[in-house]
Write a protein that binds this DNA or RNA. Structure first.
Lengths: 353, 353
DNA sequence: GCAGATTTCCAAAGCGCTTTAAATTTTTCT
DNA sequence: AGAAAAATTTAAAGCGCTTTGGAAATCTGC
């Protein structure tokens, strides 16, 4: 059933029916009700392509997520992010179109996306420190919101970000207060902006306490379980091993925990661990008592926030670049404790596997 | 730059330009080259909405994933699945539109999707055993492929599935061959079809060996780390605890491992664990030597396969329902070993937190 | 009861593309 | 060379909707 049929069935013009359905004022109340009833009865849904062509808006939002050919991996955080974003889209009648793009092919892609015209705005995922996409999108004149920021970009643009720096600064400070001074950082890839900021926070907190950062205690990589395991394993085997770990994701923390246990140590007593917790639905950090002490910030909430922001920008193009900085909370779990006394032979391996 | 402008710039009709660009034969070779050059030069990209309106095809595929209001969680498997599917879409010039839908609101949604007309086909995720969506979609006449199957549905439809039953049957048999008879199953929600099938396989293998299934050794739930931990913790505290676990996901297996370690036992010696491994990019199962013995099947490959299948169905609507059953391989890791001798006091807790 | 204001409706153009049917040009064959 | 056939191009209709510019109907107030 299309508009024409519906209109002729009602003995009305397409104009009137269209107006009635879209809430325009210049239509008789009785007529409107008649139209609405008929639309319901025949299950009429306007064709989105035609509507889009006529209105110039596509009622959908593009999410572009980068994947390099090397690390073809969709960040696990992504699922929760779009869960949040979707809420906003559903409420506003928007669709979500997803595009994966290989590093480097982005310029062409974005231009294409705009010219194809099937999205009204874009959410940019996983910005790197120096991200060419931002300048490009500004040029293209397509509304966009970045999930995260790009440190090395001076131009103003809209973003939603978690305060990575303060979160990790606080976590590090917390560890130093517990007496730790050998604190390891197992970070995400540091050309990613969020990871860079976390490192900054970590370094700042160390500096405050006059602790010299030790390159041997800093790792970065794709945030897998393996990264955590391998990093921790190697670091714990060092002559002067860390007594605490700061990790960038729950999955990595789990790897760290494994290495700690394999070394015959106990997490929370011999070695402390703090992780960032995105509150992913399938990876909740314990129940009542968190498993890991963590900096916590819901990525789902971030998704919701970014989507709302973008929709607002689309509705009012002049509302200017918007920003939203979400603060993480530091929650206490069982994975942290005071630094072991200096003399204690805490790194003796107990030959467990 | 739109077609009209491009055409007038070339002193050609829109028809010719359109044909040249879309590879129709009835256009002079020289003309075609001239057109193509101009299109490149001016960065011409046809407007997708207009094209869709004219052709009746939208060149995009819908992925609909269910979320109940209770468990608002996007299956972590999803990220990898679409990574695979995207490859196919990119190659074929299709877009991917994503819709989350609450349980129960699906009928309206699917009808809407069809009438709105902005997808040419649908991938159905997470089918339950008795899934009304399948009948509905068949009615609607929209091509679709199910990732998984719905056991209680007799009608024929297209699907891509991993052989859950045989995978778990084989894994269970493997454990019995190692001498285990107290084998626990920590499954996904069993109204989900894949989980049901896994249970069937598990039960079948037990039956072959004449082992009575023990309800106390069977759990189901959302496949989180917590589920694994809690289930294993409780089971290991039972009078006659399991000596082996079969889990439905890596994340759950990690929870099981945690419980095993907390009970002072060693995985692979005191207690064996086999998990299903979807080969998720961020949760690789070890490197050279797998961490867990596992039934392994790449969900990313499944995504690719499903997408290819759907595209084929769209290209040729009469190619009939297609099916693809992917077999999992059983890979050996460090988490399995012979069942401990009967008398051994293997469940003595060593009070480790 | 009627001019003017208001309300309600409609015909038609247009969004940017494809495609049918027909016109024009070029080639082929005798 | 000239008619028939083939190759190339075009004008115009149509996809399903919104929206502009009017027209028709109804309502005012005197």
């Amino acid at each position: 059933m299309n508009l024409k049929e519906l209109a002729s069935h009602l003995n009305l013009s397409q104009t009137t029916v269209s107006r009635a359905l879209n809430g325009y004022p210049e239509v008789n109340k009785a007529t409107r009700q008649r139209v609405e009833a008929a639309a319901r009865e025949f299950n009429y849904t306007p064709n989105a392509r035609a509507k889009g062509l006529a209105t110039g808006r596509s009622m959908s939002i593009g999410h572009v997520i980068p994947t390099s050919s090397k690390r073809e991996m969709v960040n696990p955080v992504f699922g929760d992010f779009i869960t949040g974003a979707s809420e906003a889209y559903v409420e506003a009648g928007y669709d979500l179109v997803l595009t994966l793009v290989e590093d480097g092919k982005e310029e062409r892609l974005y231009r294409n996306i705009r010219d194809k015209g099937n999205v009204d705005g874009i959410i940019v995922h996983s910005p790197r420190m120096q991200d060419s996409r931002i300048a490009l999108l500004s040029d293209l004149g397509l509304p966009f919101v970045v999930h995260g920021r790009a440190s090395n970009i001076t131009a103003d643009y809209s973003w939603v970000d978690m305060n990575n720096r303060s979160a990790f600064e606080r976590a590090t400070a917390f560890l130093t207060e517990l007496g730790h001074s050998r604190i390891a950082l197992v970070n995400g890839l540091e050309f990613m902006d969020f990871a860079f900021r976390r490192r900054e926070g970590y370094l700042a907190a160390l500096a405050v306490r006059g602790i010299d950062p030790d390159p041997a205690l800093m790792r970065q990589g794709e945030m897998t379980e393996l990264l955590g395991h391998q990093s921790a394993q190697e670091m714990l085997a060092q002559p002067d091993p860390p007594t605490a770990f700061l990790t960038s994701s729950m999955v990595t923390a789990i790897g760290v925990r494994r290495a700690i246990q394999e070394a015959g140590l106990e997490m929370g007593r011999d070695v402390s661990v703090i992780t960032h917790d995105d509150e992913l639905a399938y990876l909740m950090n314990g129940q009542n008592v968190p498993l890991f002490t963590a900096t916590r910030s819901s990525v789902r909430a971030a998704g919701r926030c970014a989507a709302d922001m973008l929709l607002r920008m689309i509705a009012d193009p002049d509302c200017g670049p918007l920003h939203s900085l979400l603060e993480a909370e530091l929650i206490l779990g069982n994975s942290t404790g005071p630094a072991p006394a200096a003399g204690e032979p805490k790194t003796v391996r107990q030959g467990q596997t």
